[in-house]
Nucleic acid binder design. Sequence first.
RNA 1: CGGGGAGUAGCUCAGCUUGGUAGAGCGCUGGUUUUGGGAACCAGAUGUCGCAGGUUCGAAUCCUGUCUCCCCGACCA
Length: 546
Amino acid sequence: MLENPNQIGKQPRDSNKLLSASPSFFLCLTSTFPNPAPDMAKPKNAITPTRSENFPEWYQQVVRAADLAENSETRGCMVIKPWGFAIWEAIQRDLDGRFKATGHENAYFPLLIPLSYLEKEAEHAEGFATECAVVTHHRLEAEKDPETGKTKMVPTGKLTEPYVIRPTSETIIGAAFSRWTKSYRDLPLLINQWANVMRWEMRPRLFLRTAEFLWQEGHTAHESKKEALEETHMIHQLYSDALRDLLAIPVIMGEKTEAERFPGAESTLTVEAMVQDKKAIQAGTSHYLGQNFAKAQNITFVDRENKEQHVHTTSWGVSTRLVGTLIMAHSDDDGLILPPRVAPQQIIIIPVTPKEESRETIIDACQALAVRLREQSYGNENLRVQVDKRDLGGGVKKWEWVKKGVPLRVEIGPRDLEEGKICLQRRDQAANQKTFMEKEEFVREVVGIIADVHQTLLERARDFRNENIAECAELAVFEKHWDETNDNPGWLITPWAGTRDEEEEISKRLKIAVRCLPIDKQNEPEAPCFMTGKPTKSRAIWGRSY
RNA sequence: CGGGGAGUAGCUCAGCUUGGUAGAGCGCUGGUUUUGGGAACCAGAUGUCGCAGGUUCGAAUCCUGUCUCCCCGACCA
């Protein structure tokens, strides 16, 4: 059996290419040997193509093999399937806890934003103008086509003011804030909402950039710049911690340059992750909005000296893009690898039942083991354990769970049962690697083993990233690094003192951008900027990105 | 939004150039045999050929429009 059956089908076409000079010869060949490669070995890997063969295609195949999501009939929008949604739910549970622990409250604001709200902050409006879906009508009328007899629904009831489907909610939340803040005693106002937003992206990709996506957006208002900045830094750290502890993704914490900032923000903090094709992903952001939105929307309060002031606001968010990030950060050529904290199932127990007479005993033993494992907890949640009792071949089940990325697979067969052992397979190790353990020992050690899977993924990702960041001090070296001959370049870190114009010039020319100014590298020994030669203590990280 | 490719069974695709009423493999269902492994054999089900028009006696095939997906680019908190 072949995981990717089209390999057989592709065989003759590939030969055809080789023999392209003589199509008739090819026809003759195939009719004589209808199956030119009958001994096709099963693929070494569950996913075709591999990461090195074609990374974007590999990504899509992983998403499909793991049954995470699929494209829908709505342009640019995906259907998130149960296995994929459970990952998002795990991310939500964790982050929601962290937000509440730091004093934030959840609320919900409308999906539709009056067009005039978006116009209030000019820079913000411009930033999102090209990707807004607009609602212009509020009813449909049935019209029968006199020829075909088919009923068509025609929009009528034109709205006097159109609504925009929120691409982000600063403006409508700001409008609420302006009603809610009267006195310094109302501050800080710390609000989060879990919501969907819509950005009419030109080039959608499952999880990474879809037209509609799920996210959380925090919005806060403060008395002073200092307090608001503290909030953005606190959230910045919170995101970094969550990515490390939940998704096993190491990030670089940094600040965006002016050119890369959120439209309307005074400063934008980012956590940047590197995935396995060495591209960067902005995995989370935290913005200090200054008084820009407060002034545009009249969000004021009376301060401790009885003077009316504008609040200082922040906004911050992470989205379902995190799911795409974790797929690309950890998965291998056998499919998804899930960090245990977000795995919908952390342990799959597969009963091995070659003999009918011992079948029931083995299944009972598996279920008894599952019950004992579920009593234990990891990351403040009980272990998620499932016994796969389906009447399918053992190999089929095994590979399904490999592709779905379950951290641990446990098998119990008649021999194991007799010896009081289990067979353990870890998703962070090769698919055929097995470890036999005393069952009691496994029950004792399981939480440690799971934690070790997490740690292995984190270290692997960190090593990969560190190996693919190079220091660069010269423009010539920099230019060479990004030219066509280097088709998969890693990140560069450079001394940087360029202006916005200088940054835009080099970005355009070399198709490269500053990912961030890493916050722990803004006070380095003075060195000449690689582009302008001006002495600087600042460093910038450059890379291609999603 | 520009360039390229593609939409035919659940999946991967063949058929289209030279119009004649739809195929393969895998998957699925049933049966038999297997089984520490991504099984073998037998039998079976599944498609208004992306959608809408047009040309034609006849369209998966030709023409026009449209929608969607993929790749590259521009764009992207």
